[in-house]
Nucleic acid binder design. Structure first.
Length: 645
RNA sequence: GUCCCGGUAGCUCAGUAGGAUAGAGCGGCGGUUUCCUAAACCGCAGGUCAGAGGUUCGAAUCCUCUCCGGGACGCCA
């Protein structure tokens, strides 16, 4: 419960009825809720649970307690209503309490300085969050937005609760697929092999990610039913994986130059992919660094302020890291086999996590290559050890739920108790309408996906068109392009985060580009309005001195509604943090923005800023709290507030 | 076939540690702008909370079954 409820409960704990029954403030808070209709009151105390404990009838209990209740500083009216005690609050006192709380936590002029809704509940604890995790050699498509933004928002939200959060981009940069890619490159682009053999560190030249993806797709298609090509792909990956033995301290294996050449091709494909990913992440306002973080001039970048570093940046740790730079995979396979957790089956090494009648988790495939399961196990151990992670979560689509159940079970079987602190933050699929009208998931490899960059470009373009109409001055100013970018990207991000993450998303251009109602632009618009009306106050009455703003002058129902919603914000953030659910924050912001917008219209006659300085000051003080709450919330969702639009 | 996730207004969704008369946005209809941004606001219409049982003083919320949609089911990750 929020700070207002706690203050009210402390007052109620003084009632004789509660004192006699031994009911303290904590217990009172647990039974407070909002009545269904505002006319009934601001809070309701339900007696159902207490009645059961005390063996009394709820209405009688409510009447008994209410009889000893009396108005106090925060409570203005107490009334028994059946099994409930309906409570009305002193608007002036509670408004003052809420405004002071926002002001206390949100000093400073910039949204990044605002901390309203923060808590220390996670102090000293570390969460490692697996987010985004695209595959290299494939462009980022719209469905990658989900893991990226849900994950990033969760990171921000957890940090607001005092957690140290390490964001890890678990790049899909290893696996038999890359054998196919290399085989395809060698087959269709003979120069690539030549350059790689000659030791050129950029054997792919200026090849784009799109070309890499097409090459893979072409080879994959052609190899269907062609055993020779399938074998070629497997061989190329085997050479790559064997070459790794050299890197982690073994001797030059039989792979010779071919392994080294494959490694070069792979590494260049990875570099090409990362630079494209970087461009997209920059659009979204995220920053990633390759792990381990090394700066050629300064040595390790992380040296002085690792905490600040983890707050500002996320890390790329590709799957290859656990194969090529650490020998965790090898050790896991050896340990699991030695401890008889793993066994051989159909020439593969597997763990039967859920009994023999369910598919096992696979460590090594029948061709001797590691599977992604073993790399995920290695990653989990690494994260737990390296960052002393208290919790570990994977922001990955719900279709992989079974994989994570197996993964966590395997960790448990291998004796790693922290498996109980691992979770799968699953989210719904992005579905696309097919020619036959059915909604289905898409595949980058089939080339049916919509590119993330195209979506962002389209959104920015639409914003620009609207801005030319609504605010031509801004549209033509240097700030215009930056604003269009922030609003366009914000529209896409908010659209993705506003609903519960488990819902499937039916991708619909019209819906994403609809900037009215519960949309990103709407949220930003209300934020902008709060800024411009504050500016108006400065023009008319000078710099606002909020300390002198009299909360008692805020007599409108709309104002009271806003105050109550703002008071609920910290709880919403705490709940979003506990449930890994950014939409809880998004929903609360919608309510606040919408209430603020109604208020804006309701004050059309008197104006928020009018001739009466006293009233204007009180209102602008509320405006300030709205603006800080909205700004803070948008930042938690990974959006960038703008000052004009 | 087995196992997951979901089904709430025409559409997209909130609401689930059980609690008072189930709420938004979009779409539809009707209104609001000499004044702080109308990307806005106000009003009206629209519901067997998929269906059937059960638990309970009380169920959209918990349990069972059925139906519908999506997903996963050893060598892609």
């Amino acid at each position: 419960m929020g700070f207002v409820e706690q203050a009210v409960a402390a007052e109620m704990a003084q009632w004789a009825g509660f004192g006699q029954a031994g009911i303290d403030a904590k217990k009172i808070v647990e039974n407070l809720s909002a009545p269904p209709k505002v006319e009934m009151g601001d809070l309701a105390f339900g007696t159902f649970r207490l009645a059961k404990e005390l063996g009394a009838k709820p209405p009688e209990l409510a009447a008994k307690f209410a009889a000893t209740g009396k108005p106090g500083k925060l409570l203005s009216e107490v009334k028994a209503a059946g099994p409930y005690i309906n409570l009305k609050l002193s608007r002036a006192e509670v408004t003052k309490l809420v405004l002071e709380e926002v002001e206390r936590t949100s000093a400073g002029a910039q949204p990044k300085d605002w901390r309203y809704g923060a808590s220390e509940s996670g102090r000293g604890k570390t969460l490692v969050i697996d987010l985004s995790s695209p595959n290299i050699a494939k462009p980022l498509a719209v469905h990658h937005l989900r893991s990226t933004m849900i994950g990033y928002s969760i990171k921000k939200i957890r940090e607001s609760q005092g957690w140290r959060v390490v964001g890890v981009n678990h790049l899909g940069d290893w696996g038999t697929g890359f054998g196919k890619l290399i085989a395809g490159l060698k087959k269709y682009f003979p120069d690539v092999e030549k350059r790689a053999n000659a030791g050129d560190p950029r054997p792919l030249g200026d090849m784009s990610v799109q070309t890499l993806n097409e090459t893979y797709a072409r080879f994959n298609n052609e190899s269907k039913g062609d055993d020779e090509l399938v074998e070629a792909g497997k061989n190329e990956f085997a050479l790559l994986e064997q070459y790794i033995e050299v890197l982690i301290g073994g001797t030059q294996a039989a792979t010779g130059k071919a392994g080294e050449a494959n490694f070069r091709i792979w590494q260049h494909a990875r570099d090409i992919s990362l630079s494209e990913f970087e461009r997209m992440y920059a659009h979204l306002g995220l920053s990633f660094h390759l792990w381990p973080v090394v700066d050629l001039q300064l040595g390790r970048v992380l040296t002085s302020e690792p905490e600040a570093f983890y707050r500002e940046h996320c890390l790329y740790i590709g799957e290859s890291y656990y194969v090529a730079a650490e020998d965790l995979c090898r050790r896991i396979i050896a340990d699991a086999t030695a401890n008889r957790v793993a066994e051989e089956s159909e020439k593969a090494i597997v763990i039967y996590t859920h009994g023999k009648d369910r598919p096992p988790l696979m460590l090594v495939k029948n061709d001797g290559a590691t599977s992604y399961h073993v790399r995920d196990l290695a990653a989990a151990l690494y994260r737990h050890r390296h960052w002393q992670a208290d919790e570990l979560t994977y922001v990955v689509g719900g279709e992989q739920k079974w994989h994570f159940e197996q993964l966590f079970k395997a960790l448990e079987l291998m004796g790693h108790g922290f498996s109980k602190n691992c979770s799968h933050t699953e989210f719904g699929l992005m579905l696309f309408q097919q020619a036959d009208g059915k909604w289905q998931k898409t595949s980058t490899r089939r080339g049916t996906a919509i590119m993330l960059e195209d979506l962002l470009d389209e959104a920015i373009k639409s914003v620009r068109e609207i801005m030319v109409q609504k605010n031509p001055e801004l549209a033509n100013s240097p700030e215009g392009e930056k604003t269009a970018h922030a609003v366009g990207v914000g529209a896409v991000v908010f659209n993705d985060l506003k609903n519960g993450r488990r819902n499937n998303v039916k991708f619909d251009w019209d819906a994403v580009l609809d900037f009215e109602g519960e949309s990103g632009p709407y949220m930003l618009y209300q934020y902008v309005r709060m800024g411009s009306v504050t500016e108006k106050f400065r023009e008319v009455h000078g710099e606002p001195d909020f300390d002198n703003g009299d909360a008692g002058l805020l007599a409108l129902d709309e104002e009271w509604r806003i105050v109550k919603l703002i008071a609920e914000f910290p709880e919403a953030v705490a709940k979003a943090s506990a449930e890994f659910e950014p939409s809880i924050v998004a929903r609360k912001l919608v309510e606040i923005a919408s209430a603020a917008s109604s208020w804006w219209t309701a004050t059309k006659d008197t104006r928020i800023v009018g001739d009466n300085r006293e009233l204007s000051l009180a209102r602008v003080r509320l405006v300030n709290a709205i603006r800080r709450t909205l700004g803070r919330g948008l930042l938690l969702l990974g959006m960038q507030p703008v000052e004009r639009m």
